[in-house]
Nucleic acid binder design. Structure first.
Lengths: 249, 249
DNA sequence: CGTAATTTTGACTCCGCTCAATTGGCGTGG
DNA sequence: CCACGCCAATTGAGCGGAGTCAAAATTACG
């Protein structure tokens, strides 16, 4: 039959971009689907794209056409204000969705840059919308993803608006550790993909302050730092730092 | 016929909650629909709800079931962190959508409180999802609303992360003025619905700083303030303050 | 009309920024 | 393989913007 004549290469491509085969499935798709249902979602990803460290997946101002799911690697998103100031608005790792900012205005508002060699699944947005109209669990899931991004951003607003520098950095480390754990990496030992400057931009402080605080956390026995290598020694201690009210009350 | 026997009260209710008749239509629904298409959307709103000044529409932690469109009035959203600190994460006025944060985790993460007597349209979320599966323009519109909320939050992150107190307050005033203009109010003269403390919380500064900056802006001839009454005198000047790089470069 | 809440203003303090020098890591080319 | 140069990170000294504490003025509201 005709189906048997599909060239090996095409089969390979299909396999390579098949969501149903992806080990990040539970991170970017609804859970509890039959394999049959899952395979209908394989149509969502049109192709994959590699992004080399330092290169950008898309730039602020570019027309929006697709969402991207991180397969592996690490990204930062940056926003550039009218007067040229640049602010890091988020860090993204495997299984997270990029490009949600572009839906509203039909162009991207931020720039997404790889902090290490990375790969993403390209999901043309028209296809995402079409599938989620036909497939309720996907619709539900997609809405949750959008909503969680809003909640995440509000968490950052809380961070920036009401915490002091040391609390912010502690919260940052705890959050990073949790996200890495969820992806099967060590919770206590990791390599920072971003510079002190990028951490500082994200957390609303200067790179020198970040550096000083790392040193202080180390003196206090909370972590061990050597450049980009971080080992968390006392996670409970970090959580205490991050939650401590300003004045002892 | 039976349809003729619909009691007058029910007709009235239908009229009162009809999106197709609402003068905020262009703020919360897709534009360019036929009146026929519009009337299918009348099913989205189940009822209206009044919220008295100081009362809350919902609280953080409560189960999520519906979205709300502001008909008139003014709301603040607040987030309470583990250690009890409260942060204002946004202000909402007529035509804006509340409750988007609740979709992801099926409970609300923030509390929405009316800052003046207000009224909202209640839109059961299941109905929103159902209608947006059947009606493409609504789906598209809803996705845009979600995305714009993300973009808005990122703007606030930029504000909090990379601007100084006076720049933040100037940006706040300019933004408020623009949103009021879009709703047909005066761009230059308005009444602040929130306290200095709430502005400060939103902008990541203390209420005393807000007050001092209002006074300074007044001395500099940018605005006129008497308590909650604000009149913008020099909007271009405010924009200059908000965009000025830290060091004179 | 009186009491509470909000706002304004002042004086002082301190956290985080600026400026600057130094150290450390890493890739490149001699 | 080591030397060089570049970039990132660390550390110090001094300063300034915004916070804290406090008191007075003004307004809102029951």
């Amino acid at each position: 039959m005709a189906a048997m004549n599909v060239p090996a290469l095409a089969t390979l491509t299909r396999l390579r971009t098949a969501c149903s085969q992806c080990n990040l499935r539970e991170l970017c798709l609804p859970v509890g689907l039959s394999s049959e249902e899952l395979s209908t979602l394989d149509n969502m990803v049109s192709t994959r794209r590699k992004v080399r460290r330092g290169d950008s997946l898309f730039y602020g101002g570019e027309p929006f056409s697709a969402l991207y799911a991180v397969r592996f690697g690490f990204f930062k998103s940056t926003l550039t204000s009218g007067d040229g100031r640049e602010q890091v608005t988020g860090f993204y790792m495997a299984g997270e969705l990029l490009g949600l900012d572009g839906i509203g205005g039909e162009r991207h508002t931020c720039t997404l840059t790889a902090l290490e060699d990375s790969e993403v699944c390209v999901m043309p947005f028209a296809r995402v919308e079409e599938l989620s109209r036909r497939f309720e669990p996907l619709q539900r899931h997609f809405h949750k993803v959008l909503s969680r991004e809003i909640v995440r951003d509000q968490g950052v607003m809380m961070l920036l608006g009401s915490m002091r520098a040391e609390e912010r950095l502690a919260a940052f480390l705890v959050n990073l550790s949790q996200r890495l754990t969820a992806r099967g990496f060590s919770a206590s030992e990791f390599v920072l993909r971003m510079t002190r400057d990028e951490i500082g931009s994200y957390l609303g402080m200067k790179l020198e302050t970040v550096s000083r605080l790392f040193s202080r956390f180390q003196e206090d026995g909370l972590i061990e730092v050597h450049q980009k290598h971080v080992r968390i020694i006392d996670i409970a201690g970090l959580k205490r730092v991050m939650a401590q009210a300003h004045a002892a009350s």
